[in-house]
Design a protein around this nucleic acid. Sequence first.
RNA 1: GGAGAGGUGGCAGAGUGGUCGAAUGUACCUGACUCGAAAUCAGGCAUACCGCAAGGUAUCGAGGGUUCGAAUCCCUCCCUCUCCGCCA
Length: 430
Amino acid sequence: MLDIQALRNDLANVAARLATRGFVLDTAKFEQLEAERKTIQTRTQELQAGRNATSKQIGFAKSKGEDTTAIMAEVASLGDELKLAETGLAVVLAELQSLLEELPNLPHDSVPVGKSEADNVEVRKVGTKPSFDFAVQDHVSLGEKIGGLDFATATKISGARFSLLTGGLARLHRALAQFMLDTHTDQHGYVETYVPYLVNAASMRGTGQLPKFEEDLFKVPRQMGDGEENFYLIPTAEVPVTNMVRDEIVPLEKLPLKFVAHTPCFRSEAGSAGRDTRGLIRQHQFDKVELVQMVDPDESFAALEQLLGHAETILQKLGLHYRVVKLCTGDIGFSSSTTYDIEVWLPAQDTYREISSCSNFEAFQARRMQARFRNAQGKPELLHTLNGSGLAVGRTLVAVLENYQQADGSIVIPEVLRPYMGGLSKLAIA
RNA sequence: GGAGAGGUGGCAGAGUGGUCGAAUGUACCUGACUCGAAAUCAGGCAUACCGCAAGGUAUCGAGGGUUCGAAUCCCUCCCUCUCCGCCA
């Protein structure tokens, strides 16, 4: 959520910055709501002040045993007008709130201006493309050759966009996740966390998935007293982990907070019909190791570079070629101020494919969540939150399969994963 | 699932219809005393919004209700704790 003060003080500038990401801010509507709010709020507060003062007099008079019928008659007439004013105020405030909740974050000044993915800026390439003296196969064919990648059965069990791993591939998948977790906890100073996969609406609101992107989520209805209040399946561990600090005031000396979590992620992939239908690239369920940091605002951009480096380390240790891309204003996510994507080289597709996305949200999520720390002056101040995939496990599995394939279709297991594979050095063809 | 007890400021903990936004303790900040610290003493110390300011408004788990007036009474819900049952 943006700071409403920024909109009040410098609406044109906010609108201009939002425009760079293709968002049209209805400034007239905002100004109108603000004007209404001011009028109604002032009026309401005047009425409340009047009522409070009179009621106080009644209490005072009664305590002295005086007659109060005259004053009580006077204040009685306030009731209806006050109720009306309060209701009107609540309506305007709710409208303002929902307008505010649907505004995306302001891109940071350093973010390249652009319309789409095509305008993203490549920051660096690391490693080299592997060369093959045979025709490369994609991970689906490779999975069939060595066995253990079974889409047909997954479809029977659940439907499209689900996968089933068995045997060596299932173990390789687990090995990747474990390797990532161990690296981030042992070498990068993250605290391992195990979190709920079903979360409430307040958490989804906190990180920005709600109210605007409900159709991307899997919703689990449940009865709650009279009505119903849904659970949602997490689309990323960012949601439960970042919400750890919702409504908290973190002591300064505890910063930065750094958490890592390995979780499944559930996405409805609404609006992605027909995209990436083959293979493991785009699924309703996939695993991800997620890095999350909550930091002092002065340090969030340095933290972003570090976090990005932590994610890159995994690819380097796995010996995978990748590039880092800085997303342009038109391509960054709703809540993000700055985002780097890491794209891994996939030889079978002859292209780089997103495997991690690392973002600084500045105070955008913290303001929604009221996630604060006590600053050096002892005052509560909004934190900055960051997160990044470190990495998407399913896509990393794809990258390992495709980059480590041999002429016969077998897969050499990267050195760093072998301890997690019981010393195995190769997945042989079935 | 059944029975009971609770949810108040950073923390602990009073407060059961009227100068209560809330005693007290503790933590923290400032000052005094001290060579310095501890102890002691004095003062300060919730958040948000409106306002140039004076000041005002809201917030005592959430929502609704009663009332001139609600932390306090009523209703619904959520959460926590204790005991019992069930259970990976």
